[in-house]
Write a protein that binds this DNA or RNA. Structure first.
Lengths: 354, 354
DNA sequence: ATTAAGAATGTGTACGTACACATTAAAAAC
DNA sequence: GTTTTTAATGTGTACGTACACATTCTTAAT
């Protein structure tokens, strides 16, 4: 059903139908109603090819995400964003990725300023530096530039879309798995490993979820819970870590609420005779973690589909700008439980093919 | 970069460039080489809007899948296929779904004949009735109609694409989870529940995977393994099931290699005092199973993203017919481990949004 | 040298939409 | 009743591609 046919049905010209569809005015009330009725009746759907051809718009989307070295967590969201660009560039979605150092506030500010100057049509933002990210969203709002958030949310930010995880629930899930694995009484250790002093909301929420589950489980009688922080910047962090892993020789499980769990895994591996039975649960399917999962040193990894997060973020702009469809304001991705037995189908390069 | 610009660069007309691009011949070798070189150099990508507009082709895809009543497994692949149609119809992908009764070979044959008569441009086939499905694929091949398989594969069928699961690995995963959950020695029971006598390859592979894991685990010393079949057609199936659940009063876990596990869950629920501690693991996130997972009667469900399977199957034709891209010949979806703690984000209606 | 046949190349139209511009009809001003 | 203004409606062109058809250029046959 085309505009032409509608025009014929309504006994008016193409131009009139066009004005009605786009609400450009300059149509008498009578004909407006007549045409609208027909449009509704025949369920007119614009031909996206013709539309795309004549508009021939392109949209510049800028993603502002943490930089990474190969194998680090933030490689995965970036990968997803790039994959989406490959699929969507033919629809006029152009992408530029700006990387900031997540351990450096000035680096974020610099890139944020650069972003604003480029006047993009849309922004994908990973608000890992919370406060500064919130400031940027205010600026974007003022400049009327839509933005989507990935990884973590900024409540009440008026984002086009948030795509991420439920970190609290992720922690609960980790605790549940830990409780399933542990067969004896002892100590469960929560170890946080960071290379900066920034407050990380995601880590905190995972820890809270973990503790929430443990405190409410039947296991609480048999276990004690300890928390440790390791700072990778400090000189003796390796000693500290080894010490934290099994201080009283009764540690039965360790939870690392981040992708840094491979550091613990490595430590356990080199002390396998004393620590070999400790159950290890952490987050994210990065290469280093996968290695230890395959070896059986890490028992479970929890994933939140970071590639998908990136993919969906760019796709949200395609839906919003190209298709002019409504996009869901929040999308929580599933918390995947990954173990030796199902690893191979998560580790696929093509998880984002949809 | 358009054909027009290429024509200008090559000092030829649009028609000549067009002939070169589509290899229609009637171009002298010299100009053909000149134009080809330019096309390659400027990395010409056809404008999909203009292309789509002028071709204005539509493709009739027919899906041949098992019928279902609400809440049954096969509702999910159908849902995914329909969701894909919603997204892809604007690109000319038209869908018709034919349903057959998976307990009736004649019903399959009837629908298959109907399908062939409709001369579709592509077919999505769920080959649950193996032998007849294979016959259909031969016919389709002869008629030069591409087809994609979902759920289970037909080896060497020359399908455009197979989208499904690794059933053997699914069984192994179930066994791994069972071993994590079980704290005492006793019997693990594999219960198959069917309402027909057809051989079901998927069930068989899951069982084999399950046994493979158990036999190779440290647990084998502490447990014994039994197998039971329940036929829902028989008059006394409920008695049989109750009997099978805990025959020697030492059952510690039950594995049902299908979505039928809710029958077992119901049985356990009504005998909670004697069977309350039995661990339950089964497949598929259908409503009935979710109910018992939430209640804590089912401990784990293993999912293989049936909606995604359906979605990807239709999308494979979009990629093949509309975008003329190569599609992967096999796609194994991840085996999701679902438990109370991560259920909510899998049970989302919108799992297929990508 | 002229013509016919065939190869090579060029031109024109259509697809459905958006938007600028042209035209006509109606109402207001004189 | 004529002119001016404004509202309403109609027309034409462009987007980039595919394909039918028209034209020009070669080459061989007469």
């Amino acid at each position: 059903m085309t505009i032409k046919e509608i025009a014929k049905l309504a006994n008016v010209s193409l131009g009139t139908v066009d004005r009605v569809i786009h609400k450009r005015g300059k149509v008498s009330k009578k004909t407006e109603e007549k045409v609208s009725a027909i449009i509704k009746k025949v369920n007119y759907q614009p031909n996206i090819y013709a539309r795309g051809l004549v508009l021939n718009k392109s949209y510049d989307i800028i993603a502002l995400v943490p930089s990474f070295v190969e194998g680090e967590y933030w490689e995965m969201p970036s990968k997803g964003i790039k994959m989406a660009e490959k699929n969507l560039s033919k629809f006029g979605i152009k992408l530029e990725i700006l990387y900031f150092d997540q351990n450096s506030v000035p680096s974020f500010i610099e890139k944020a300023d650069e972003l604003i100057k480029l006047k993009p049509d849309g922004v994908i933002l990973a608000p890992v530096i919370n406060f500064e990210a919130a400031k940027l969203t205010k600026k974007l709002e003022k400049a009327n530039i839509p933005f989507s958030l990935i990884d973590s949310n900024i409540p009440n930010s008026n984002a086009l879309s948030f795509i991420g995880q439920d970190a609290f629930q992720s922690g609960k899930l980790a605790a549940k798995l830990m409780c399933s694995e542990i067969k004896a009484q002892g100590t469960i250790s929560i170890i946080t490993i960071k290379n900066n002093e920034n407050h990380n909301k995601t880590l905190q929420q995972r820890i809270e979820g973990f503790k929430d589950y443990i405190y409410n489980s039947d296991f609480i009688a048999d276990i004690s819970l300890t928390e440790n922080n390791i700072h990778l910047g400090s000189a003796n962090w390796e000693e500290c870590l080894t010490q934290a892993c099994n201080p009283d020789n009764d540690t039965v499980g360790i939870f690392v609420p981040s992708s840094m769990i491979h550091y613990v895994a490595k430590c356990i591996e080199s002390n396998v005779d004393t620590m070999g039975n400790i159950k290890l649960i952490g987050n994210d399917l990065i290469a280093n973690n996968v290695k230890y999962l395959k070896k059986g040193i890490i028992n479970y990894l929890i994933g939140q589909r970071p590639e998908n997060q990136g993919y969906l973020a760019l796709e949200s702009f395609y839906k919003h700008l190209v298709l002019e469809k409504q996009v869901p304001s929040e999308k929580y991705l599933p918390l995947d439980i990954i173990t030796q037995e199902n690893l191979m189908y998560y580790n696929d390069d093509d998880v984002v093919s949809m």
